[in-house]
Amino acid sequence: MSDEKQRLPTPTSYGLTPEEMAMRKKRNLAIALGLGVFIIIIFAVTILRIGGAVADRSF
């Protein structure tokens, strides 16, 4: 059993095809884009919700 384990090659990657690599790149770019849009939206919501009230406080 342990001998058999030793003989098996240790996989280092899933061996993606060029097509699979291209799709993975597209997915990664979509996630990056989504994250960027999310950051902009949260920033915009924060600014719009605070509005002019940011100056209405005692320092």
């Binding site: 090659p9 996989p11 899933y14 061996g15 699979e20 993975r24 997915r27």
Partner: peptide
């Protein structure tokens, strides 16, 4: 698990799924 098994697993996951 052999390389071929890993390859089969990879094929059954979302490796070919695009953002669409």
């Amino acid at each position: 698990m052999t390389n071929a098994d890993h390859s089969a697993l990879a094929k059954s996951s979302s490796q070919l799924a695009g953002p669409g």
